[in-house]
Write a protein that binds this DNA or RNA. Structure first.
Lengths: 256, 256
DNA sequence: CGCGCGATTGAGCACTATCAAGAGCAGTGG
DNA sequence: CCACTGCTCTTGATAGTGCTCAATCGCGCG
């Protein structure tokens, strides 16, 4: 049974194991009750104001978290990949403060908040892993604040593309400096605080500079060093996606 | 001895106790080894790239975390009040990825990361409190992304002022809708992604609308409902600054 | 074939940045 | 007591990055 579960939980376990959990922690995690549910691209997993009694984990596909401001504009605050815990704040708060939407079709696991509650008190090592995971999320958040707050459009978008490259590489979803990237230009705009139109023009410029190519929904990084430079990108803030204590080489292509 | 420590740690304990830790957790926390160090206003506590072997906790005063982008511009990603844990990411990463600077003079406690490491594994309830605290930080981060990403200058600044009002109220540092606010207009700009000049003009407009008054380094909120409306402010994302499970009334003045 | 969504292009505008300069104020040292 | 310095706030004029509005195009799909 635990074997069957771990089949779906594989991306999650891969993530947790970066934090060096013990086999006992791992077994306890795998024995956690949860419910799997498939979602179509664009479907909402959680809406602001919903009562949240369980915590969502991405099993496959991409999803985003966003908020709507008074003017009606939307801001994406996070993009979550397989293995990510999506809405710890919502689950622990009891009420969702943001919206969770699928970017692609995919499966979400719902774990009762009470079960998380209980297991983390009995397995401090597991709680540690989840805590570190939250700290990484916070580190990404803070970099996004910098991105939308103080960088121009070209730099913002280049930075976003670099971040995905590194995160997908950690997830084993990057090959030969290209990755599938299921965001429309409007969604890229919502993530970077720009309009879709300006994103369009900026992407053209990035392609024109020979930094990237785009085919359908995939990005090919043609010049990693150039893109990282254009995006003012230093992967240090993503470092412990990989290991708590380790000092790893994190460049995607060559050095940064 | 634990009594002497708790005198300095009072703001920290007040914060942790919101998460309902046990007396044993509390005692263990108070027994943590730490070093106190006073800093002058403007002094740096940590600089990007520093080796980080301990975790900083604000005992008194305000401090900020910021990063510098390629163009030389600065973005403040967080303002920390007494009781806040400042740089968990840095401590756990081993190397600082952002800068920590005092906004006012104040005292910082340095707790060895190894001690945090050890105590949290032995006291899951305490780890829970720290984890929840990190989740709250992340929640604030994500709201800041929305703020700088999709709101105009007037809304951004009004939102910032509202957030401080609520957070300071939680800390008992707000009286009669006024609080000391030690940020210069340039620093407000660095926190909101604006220039100091534009902050100046926007603050004038806010004052002109009768929403706030400013005296020296303090803010008086003259019309809470108006300011909250102008700032598109909903305190839900700060909710569990107060309690994990509770549903509290969080309005500062009247309802929001 | 019509429909809808996303990408693209053009023109004009607006919000915010930049540049420049002056004023008020606190601290410092002669 | 009075320059002198530095910082913050303030104001004006100008420029620019990115937004708004509007329309076209390409493509997958029922």
């Amino acid at each position: 049974m635990s074997k069957r579960f771990s089949q779906f939980l594989a991306p999650v376990l891969r993530k947790l194991e970066r934090y060096e959990i013990t086999p006992a922690d791992r077994d306890a995690f795998v024995a956690l009750p949860f419910m799997r549910k498939p979602f179509a691209a664009g479907a909402h997993v959680v809406r602001e104001g919903d009562r949240a009694v369980s915590c969502c984990v991405v099993l496959s596909g991409f999803c985003i978290r966003y908020k709507i401001v008074a003017s009606g504009a939307r801001q994406i605050v996070a993009v979550n990949l397989p293995g990510d815990f999506v809405d710890l704040p919502n689950a622990l708060l009891g009420t969702a403060v943001d919206n969770v939407q699928m970017l692609t079709s995919g499966e979400i696991a719902f774990v009762p908040a009470s079960a998380i509650d209980e297991i983390t008190l009995r397995h401090p090592g597991l709680q540690r892993a989840l805590w570190l995971n939250t700290i990484l999320d916070a580190s990404i958040f803070s970099e996004w604040i910098v991105n939308v707050g103080r960088r121009d459009a070209r730099t913002r978008i280049a930075h976003l593309l670099c971040e995905f490259a590194v995160r997908l590489r950690e997830n084993g979803q990057l090959e030969a400096n290209s990755y599938t990237f299921p965001m429309s230009q409007e969604q890229i705009g919502d993530a970077t605080g720009l309009t879709a139109i300006h994103v369009n023009r900026t992407l053209q410029a990035l392609r024109g500079s020979g930094l990237i190519r785009m085919e359908k929904r995939s990005v090919i990084i043609e010049d990693w060093d150039g893109l990282a430079a254009a995006g003012d990108f230093d992967p240090a803030y993503l470092r412990f996606a990989c290991s708590v204590s380790g000092s790893h080489d994190h460049s995607v292509g060559q050095s940064v």
